[in-house]
Simulated scan of single mutants.
Amino acid sequence: MTTKRGLITDSFKVVKKARNGVKREKRPTPPPPQKGEEQQCVLSSCLEPETETVREEELQRLTHFDLNWRFGPCTGISRLQRWERAKLHGLSPPEEIRDLLLQTHTDPEYNLSLWSEYPL
């Protein structure tokens, strides 16, 4: 006696969604701003500056340092302690990170690692 082995798809009905007959209307593209005319921002993304501030760029570099496991774990210690430990073990951490941390040693947002908010 052979038992027919069914597929999981055999036990469920095939249900197809009906397509809406309504197509989305395409909006015409707005004309380019005229010379001397200021462009108005409609989207919320226009309200943010196009370029990152220096602080955001520095914090981004420090986040990349935190995420790079080549320099060892970063939980439970400050970024500067991690940098010094990596240097002690010959892992060649970037000098620019150390310089940045020494310049901003009073700011906890710079000193504490990305994972400092999570309990150990």
Rank of each mutant, 00 (worst) to 15 (best):
M1S: 12
T2L: 11
T3S: 03
K4L: 14
K4Y: 13
K4H: 12
K4M: 11
R5G: 05
R5I: 14
G6Q: 15
L7E: 13
L7T: 15
T9H: 06
T9D: 10
S11D: 13
V14L: 14
V15K: 13
K16T: 10
A18H: 11
A18M: 13
R19E: 09
R19G: 07
R19V: 04
N20P: 08
G21I: 07
G21M: 10
G21P: 07
K23G: 11
K23M: 06
K26S: 10
P28V: 08
P28N: 11
T29D: 09
P32I: 06
P32L: 05
P33T: 01
Q34N: 09
G36F: 09
G36Y: 11
E37Q: 14
Q40C: 06
C41V: 13
V42L: 14
S45C: 04
S45M: 06
C46N: 12
L47P: 02
L47N: 06
E48P: 00
E48V: 04
P49C: 07
P49T: 12
E50A: 10
E50P: 14
E52A: 05
T53G: 03
V54Y: 06
V54M: 07
R55G: 01
R55S: 00
E57I: 05
E58H: 08
L59G: 01
L59N: 00
Q60C: 06
R61K: 09
L62Y: 00
T63P: 05
T63M: 09
T63Y: 09
T63R: 14
F65V: 06
F65L: 05
D66K: 02
D66R: 02
D66C: 03
L67V: 01
F71K: 11
F71V: 04
G72C: 08
P73C: 05
C74Q: 10
T75L: 10
T75R: 13
G76K: 03
S78Y: 03
R79Q: 00
R79N: 01
R79L: 00
Q81F: 04
Q81Y: 05
W83T: 01
R85I: 04
A86M: 08
L88D: 15
G90H: 09
L91Q: 08
P93K: 09
P94F: 13
P94Q: 15
P94S: 14
E95P: 12
R98G: 06
L100P: 00
L100T: 02
L101T: 00
L102R: 11
L102K: 12
L102F: 04
Q103I: 04
H105Y: 04
D107H: 00
P108K: 01
P108L: 01
E109M: 01
E109S: 01
E109D: 03
Y110Q: 00
Y110V: 00
N111T: 09
S113E: 01
S113Q: 02
W115Q: 02
E117F: 00
Y118M: 03
Y118F: 06
Y118V: 06
P119G: 04
